[in-house]
Design a protein around this nucleic acid. Structure first.
Length: 600
RNA sequence: GCCCCUGUAGUUCAAUGGAUAGAACGGAAGUUUCCUAAACUUUAAAUCCAGGUUCGAUUCCUGGUGGGGGUACCA
């Protein structure tokens, strides 16, 4: 079905015949012809003028002539400066279209893209249990979910997992504050979502602690001393020790409050339409991590300093010395990651890649993690991959959770749903919807806007998000694509009614207009785009592609009457094209975790 | 100090070393006897600076400069 390979080898032959140049066909680079020129693919001939010893134009013409006579796919060519624009025979496009429409499922199902699909794990979300999810988490979650769907689409087996940071001193802070100042408040009694309630006490601790420190400073203590000697700081240490010792009262409190948080997170995940195959908890892996560190010391991979702390020396690979276990034997951040990774590869012996969706401020951390496992001789160490993404900035600057300048995920979802509702009501199209249907649609549109907005940006770049202007519904946006989809569906419904059109009917293509061919060419690229997106873990490629498809259809739609009852043959063919287009759009949206409404 | 990322229209984003740097929003001007006007058409507007490599550089290299992040037993 692919024509590129045939053209490439035909060019390789031509170069060999004309200039005795031997190049393998996959080294020949073909570009898509720019829209303003005639042709389908373009060969840049400048690199070959050295061997041809002729002008670029002459070289291009020579190659073009030979292609035209030797390759049946090539119908014509034209030369502009050093660019050889090759036109592919129309029959190729017709044939492609007919094959694709007569078996849409085969065209959309890319599971055979890789002859030996892999087994991968994608970790995303990774929240702390001391505060609710915010905008930064949303970029993480949407990226992780979408990447998982893309990888599955090309046939990989994917484990979608979450790692909950459920232990440590920061967790104790909200526990202590609740215990001291909470008066037994629960999510039920306060009608507050569990994660928000716990977050409230985390903030409360910070406030009380600062008060106390300030008080001590006024009494003449230095700030550092005050932070060490504050009674709250001491109580926190006590609590952490109690937790580690398994003190029943502390553990029960911990379990209760974490339970509240998980209930809250579940609601947020559900609203976002994402989920996980398995959730790992740091509290269950950090001990394994400690063990790995101890084993490493025995093997001589790590060393112990005089104070008893354990380190790894990574200066030989351009990194620093890093601490792995504190002098008092307690674990540091990386300790649990060691345990978690080890556990995962034990659970899935055939796991090839472990993808961590984590912000770019942790790039150093993941470099270190990989090097540690390499030093320990783990065969799977090279399979660790940090899918790093940029921060989400606000117009007011960076989000700082301690300063409260965060955009809360639940608030944002609510605002966007309301925005979608207002915009939809203003158009007044849903008069025959009942309130549940309408509400569902507002959410579909709102989430479509939010998800598309976040996913269309290259992950590694930082992005700016303006919550007050919220989300556009026009232009390069999710709702535009959703709207295009809904409209195509509506055209098809009409066609089915008036023409008894069915998807299984086989159309005959006589002529293809320029717009039609352009749309067909765009659809042709679908498998290539998805493959590229899977290889680069890039939902942005899918987003930009689906926008192009939607735009291309809108263009076509305005130039043609699709359902013309006087010309059933053409109508049938155009409806097939519409159907194929709508399925491609739906599949792309699905890979981004966006719903495609039939009507909007 | 050292390391990493980044600088494109007024704004938010694109552009495997290729043709006249693309979209969208916002600005200006249009299009509803026609399957959804959340649409379509036209229009003004940009590569941080200086070198280098190349037939050709937004892209690669060097230096400068602006922004962000990391790095010292935080997670």
């Amino acid at each position: 079905m692919k024509f590129e390979n045939q053209i490439q080898s035909a060019i390789a032959d031509a170069l060999h015949k004309l200039y005795a140049l031997s190049v393998s066909s996959d080294e020949i680079k073909l570009d898509e012809t720019r829209k303003e020129f005639e042709g389908d693919v373009t060969l840049v001939v400048f690199p070959y003028t050295k061997v041809s010893k002729k002008s670029p134009e002459q070289t291009a013409n020579e190659i073009g002539e030979l292609l035209k006579t030797n390759c049946a796919l090539v119908s014509s060519f034209n030369v502009v400066k050093g660019f050889l624009n090759i036109s592919i025979n129309d029959s190729f496009w017709k044939e492609f279209f007919q094959t694709a429409t007569s078996n849409q499922i085969a065209f959309l199902d890319l599971k055979k893209t890789y002859s030996s699909p892999g087994h991968l794990m994608v970790e995303y979300s990774s929240p702390n249990t001391n505060k609710p999810l915010h905008l930064g988490h949303m970029r993480n979650i949407l990226l992780g979910y979408s990447v998982s769907q893309i990888l599955k689409a090309v046939g990989h087996r994917v484990e979608q997992v979450n790692l909950v940071n459920d232990r440590g001193i920061h967790i104790c802070k909200s526990m202590l504050a609740w215990k001291k100042f909470g008066h037994g408040e629960t999510p039920q009694s306060s009608h507050t979502k569990g994660d928000h309630l716990v977050g409230k006490y985390y903030v409360e601790y910070d406030r009380k602690f600062k008060e106390e420190v300030e008080h001590l400073v006024q009494k003449g203590m230095s700030k550092e001393e005050a932070e060490k000697n504050a009674s709250l700081a001491k109580e926190i240490q006590q609590m952490l020790l109690k937790w580690e010792a398994g003190d029943k009262e502390t553990i029960d409190l911990w379990k209760m409050m974490n339970g509240w948080v998980y209930d809250g997170f579940d609601i947020s995940y559900k609203k976002l339409g994402v989920g996980f195959d398995k959730i790992y908890y740091e509290s269950q892996t950090y001990l394994l991590g400690k063990k790995i560190v101890e084993d490493g010391v025995n093997k001589g991979a790590f060393f112990k300093k005089e104070d008893g702390s354990i380190w790894i020396d990574l200066t030989d690979v351009g990194l620093d010395q890093k601490v792995l276990l504190r002098a008092d034997g307690t674990s540091v951040y990386i300790t649990q990651d060691l345990g978690t990774a080890q556990l995962r590869f034990e659970e899935h012996a055939d796991l090839e890649k472990l993808v961590y969706v984590v912000g770019n401020e942790q790039e150093y951390h993941f470099k270190v993690l990989k090097e540690i496992f390499k030093k320990l001789g783990r065969s799977w160490a090279d399979g660790l991959f940090h899918l790093s993404y940029g921060m989400v900035d606000l117009p007011s600057g960076k989000m700082k959770s301690r300063e409260g300048s965060v955009v809360d995920a639940d608030d944002l979802i609510k605002e966007i749903d309301e925005e979608a509702e207002m915009a939809t009501k203003a158009l007044g199209k849903l008069d025959d919807y009942d309130s549940d249907e309408a509400k569902k649609l507002y959410h579909t549109i709102g989430m479509g806007a939010l998800k598309y907005f976040i996913l269309k940006v290259d992950p590694k770049k930082k992005m700016l998000f303006n919550p007050t202007e919220s989300i556009d519904l026009n232009g390069n946006t999710g709702p535009f694509v959703q709207y295009s989809y809904a409209r195509i569906r509506s055209v098809i419904r009409k066609g089915e009614k008036s023409l008894q059109f069915t998807v299984s009917a086989s159309p005959t293509v006589n002529k293809m207009s320029k717009e039609e061919k352009s749309l067909v060419k765009t659809i042709y690229r679908f498998p290539l785009i998805v493959k590229e997106a899977a290889e680069n873990f890039s939902p942005a490629l899918i987003a930009n592609y689906v926008y192009e498809v939607a735009k291309s259809f809108n263009h076509f739609y305005h130039d043609h009457v699709i359902v013309d009852e006087a010309d059933k043959e053409t109508s049938l063919y155009r409806l097939q094209l519409a159907s194929l287009t709508s399925e491609v759009i739906k599949e792309c949206l699905r890979m981004m975790g966006i719903d495609a409404p039939e009507r909007m």
